[in-house]
């Protein structure tokens, strides 16, 4: 048993493992290749879930930031920060899987296309958010500034999501909407990948939150010790 584990995280963790096994089985073995893309279509079963989970994480950051700005609770500050860190990791996954999908399909790892560029900008801005959270500032000041950025940064999600509709580019439009342009085993493989990566994200966010909580407690313990020490010196 580890320090940041609990019954909840163990249930989520084992479910995530089970769904990951299914996602790999269906995504890599059972589902067939695509008529044009051949096996590189399998990358979409991790690429699309990665970006969707990242969107969700940044949504949690938005909610946490808004609540923090209203009630200044450490809990929501840490929720916002934890979700942003996991979301940025998933965003990196989306960029990597997109690049290795793009090479065999488009013929290039990277193109300054609106969808790709806006995603890169989103990545930079959430890195900025994470950098801000690591600045040596008083807790309240840092958390407040992070919360403001956590709210402002959500614009990126909107720009990235609609970039394929607003501007012309290389990236294809929506496949996985209410009217999906993919079906049967391939759709199911994508669904399993989404559930697996979603559960993994939940597990990661909770553990990241608890690590953040412990960091905060340790800060306060050090502060108390320092105050006691200084009082001792004064006598």
């Amino acid at each position: 048993m580890t320090a940041t584990s609990s019954k909840v995280t163990r249930v989520i963790g084992y479910s995530a493992l089970a769904f990951t096994a299914l996602a790999l089985l269906f995504g890599l073995v059972i589902s067939g290749p695509e008529v044009n893309m051949r096996d590189s279509v399998r990358l979409l079963y991790v690429h699309v879930p990665s970006i969707l989970t990242a969107y969700l994480c940044f949504g949690i950051t938005l909610v946490g930031s808004v609540i923090y700005l209203r009630n200044r609770s450490t809990f929501w500050d840490l929720v916002a920060g934890s979700a942003a860190e996991v979301g940025t990791l998933y965003l990196a996954f989306a960029l990597i899987t997109g690049a290795v999908w793009g090479k065999p399909t488009w013929g290039t790892y990277w193109e300054w296309d609106p969808r790709l560029t806006s995603t890169a900008v989103m990545f930079i801005m959430y890195l900025g958010y994470l950098a801000l959270r690591r600045m040596e500032l008083p807790h309240e000041v840092r958390s407040r500034r992070a919360a403001v950025l956590g709210v402002v940064n959500i614009i990126n999600v909107i720009v990235v999501h609609y970039s394929v509709q607003w501007w012309r580019g290389l990236h294809q439009g929506r496949t996985f909407g209410l009217d999906p342009q993919i079906r049967d085993m391939q759709y199911f493989s994508w669904f399993l990948g989404t559930v697996a990566l979603g559960l993994i994200a939940a597990w990661l966010i909770i553990h990241r939150f608890r690590v953040g909580w412990l960091e905060r407690q340790l800060d306060e313990i050090h502060l108390e010790e320092a105050l006691v020490e200084r009082r001792g010196e004064g006598v």
Binding site: W106, L170, Q172, I182, Q186
Partner: peptide, 15 residues
């Protein structure tokens, strides 16, 4: 000097 293939958003399993 560069030709990229634009894939559509429709995917069809090779069944």
């Amino acid at each position: 000097d560069q030709v990229l293939v634009k894939h559509s958003e429709e995917y069809v399993e090779d069944n």
